[in-house]
Design a protein around this nucleic acid. Sequence first.
RNA 1: GCGCCUGUAGCUCAACUGGAUAGAGUAUCUGACUACGGAUCAGAGGGUUGAAGGUUCGAAUCCUUCCAGGCGCACCA
Length: 544
Amino acid sequence: MQTLDIFSIQKTLIANFTSAIEPFGVTDVAVNIERPKDKSHGDFSCPVAMLLAKKLKKQPLLIAQEIVKNLKFDPSLISQVEVAPPGFINLRLNPPVFYETLQQALKESADFGKSTQGKGEKVILEFVSANPTGPLNIVNARAAALGESIANLLMASGTETSREYYVNDAGVQARLFGQSLIAACDRLNGKDVQAPEGGYQGAYMDDLAKDYVKVSPAPDPGEWGMEQVLKWQRDALLRYDVHFENWYSEKKLLHDTGLVKETIEMLKQKGLTYEKDGAVWIKVSEFGAPKDEVLVKSDGYPAYFAADIAYHLQKFKRGFTKLVDIWGPDHHGHIIRMKSALQAAGAPADQFSVIIAQQVNLMEGTEKVKMSKREGKFVTMDELLDQVGKDAARFFFVMRSANSHLDFDIEVAKKQTEENPVFYIQYAHARICSLLKKCADNGLTPSASAGEFVSLKDPESFLLLKELMEYPQWVLESGKALEPHRLVIYLQSLAANFHLFYAKHRILDAPPDEAKARLALALGVKVVLKNALALLGVSAPDQM
RNA sequence: GCGCCUGUAGCUCAACUGGAUAGAGUAUCUGACUACGGAUCAGAGGGUUGAAGGUUCGAAUCCUUCCAGGCGCACCA
């Protein structure tokens, strides 16, 4: 018998349905197997009859009944087929299938959930990419948590993925930053100077100045300062358990190599540019952008946009088939511009997508925390980590979809109580660990093979068995959709179902066969809790 | 003015991308250990999915028009 997992089961079912609808002669309908929202409807559901209804101009319910007549299932796989209004065909799995997948989960352990279902694409995920002119802030922290989790999900499903941090170390920023640092040094010496217009000021600049004056001979203030700030950022991200394969320097890799100039030249040759008011413009408005943009400023320097186009074209040239960027809410207007530019340059623009990590409101209870730089109230990622810790921070940021404007309640995140959703899940894990230990002390060990699980017959056990079986699919889908919050929803449900199972069924003093089977189920839950939390960057403690 | 995002239970958010009776957490109220971790479990109340139309077997989801909030619309990055 071949290995039995959620993917192969679904594949089989789709094949079964596809041949069952062949007699209808409709070819352009894709068979789709869903999880019913209401668990009482069964384990799988197929809405294909409703899709056919339109084409055949017949009642979906009647079509569903006809399909069922044509359906031929392997009886060891499917134990029940039902038609439900308005035309769903619902299926139930044969119980041994669940036992089989639990055995699989226990065997694979830390590898359970990994698959090769997502292989084929080569994804580059660019995120955080904050200017190296100051510490990382809250939105950066959100982007970091999202990016890292998405990368983990993609890789777990076999998608080749690279994480990249684009370092904006060129242009006006660098100059301004250097000047600001000099101004800070002057302030150290008692002079009353401000940072230049649009420059950088704040306690961290003064700290930087104190270190800068100690370095001799004095290096270029802009370059030196940015290196220091980058180091802060790296350290903060490391502390946050966020890693990058590559830090891509705008200056070194795009400007110094002449890539930006080449790109501008290429765009010119394609006839995509024109001159106006002493500047070079790119005709992105012909490709969907609301207006044209400046490529080369009238002072002769390339505009930021030019470097950004070069950078993204380069990503394709480096062999990536899919480009995903995570940007802050203030950049959503750039999406259409970038897409237009890529399209104009002849790149596959639909393979470029942007996730907007929406604004974060820091809350303390019902009160909004003022994000005043001067007061320094948790404006930086480091300060947030000091306050709530890595687990809560990572969890809270991926708990909601990137699109929602997030209220981050520091009070709740700090709490070590049931109000805090992280602890609910971690508690389930710790509880299982403690249970396993206690059982081991009493000479009880979990059973390990499918045949020994037959005593798991109650609805609570089946709920868990089913959820365990579905786990690899949740990993795949959350990754594909670039939405880690889906995995959080899954986790909360798994933890809740375990607590329910635990409250209802005794393990230690059950008859040995039952006890060992239940213990195996608990172990399966523990394995998945730990694996899933790891993908989100949250620890799974053995005790709390 | 134009564009993007958001609007769902008192509050914070889901809803597998058009599917079945719109679900969780929290807050409120009520119940459950002489027992493997009560950081838990069970139950109750709570909804015109911002509003009005439209599309179809079927809409929180799609199209149109409004309303409200946020963010963009630089030869800044």
